[in-house]
Design a protein around this nucleic acid. Structure first.
Length: 209
DNA sequence: CCTCCGATGTGCT
DNA sequence: GCACATCGGAGGC
């Protein structure tokens, strides 16, 4: 059986790129510890050919990206958690960073989790906006590292879906990355209020593909 | 052991 | 627009 994300791409018999698989994740439902979101913003990260990817240097941390697909890769940055879906790309390693979503179930629980870090009310469209906020809303921590997302008995699961009729998918450069900043590997649903604004890395470097 | 540095979020100017 | 809190990964020594 093919991987979850790969199975959603119907045309093309060739192995889909990380970017194609990222795009195909939009509209899918991700459930984490009682909260479900519909994905609206994702980014693709590849292997040794992608200087912005953790898999660019193969270490104990990035090893999971070289392993089987449909596993959850969680890492910490600046004190926050970020969640990725490992996919089987044409290269030796790839994962999709989950950047934002609309909460479709467990809204009260998501609000409760987010309130801990912020004063005052949080608008519903900000509950899972940004990779760190997404993880906090869904209760995703390092304890969820390597979760099999196709196993319904785990606290974190992924169900395939697609953008609603009429919704447009757009692409742009990945947020906050220093290297390979010209690669248009970020995908989002055009006009969705949960999608974050683009921010350049303070010391962005140009990189020939 | 030590230094550098982010796939970030928030608040302030 | 900018500053900074914050902390583990990675690599140099």
């Amino acid at each position: 059986m093919e991987s979850l994300v790969f199975a959603m791409i119907q045309e093309s018999s060739a192995r889909p790129s990380a970017a194609e698989q990222a795009r195909s994740l939009l509209g899918s439902h991700l459930t984490g510890h009682g909260v479900t979101i519909r994905l609206t913003e994702v980014e693709a990260y590849a292997g040794p050919d992608d200087p912005a990817s953790h898999a660019f240097t193969r270490t104990a941390r990035s090893e999971i990206m070289y392993g089987p697909p449909d596993r959850l890769y969680v890492y910490r940055i600046h004190g926050h958690h970020c969640a990725n879906v490992v996919v089987a790309g044409p290269g030796p390693a790839a994962a999709i960073l989950l950047r934002a979503g609309v909460v479709v179930d467990g809204t009260e629980l998501a609000r409760f989790r987010r309130v801990a870090t912020r004063t005052g009310a949080i608008p519903d469209d900000r509950l899972a906006s940004g990779p760190g906020n997404l993880c906090r809303a869904l209760g995703i921590t390092m304890a969820d590292l390597d979760t099999d997302l196709t196993d319904a008995s785990t606290p974190v699961t992924l169900e395939s879906g697609a953008p609603h009729p009429g919704e447009r998918v757009v692409a742009g450069p990945r947020v906050g990355v220093r290297r390979a900043a010209d690669r248009q590997w970020r995908f989002w649903i055009d006009g969705d209020p949960t999608v974050s604004a683009y921010r350049r890395h303070p010391r962005r470097v140009r990189e020939p593909f």
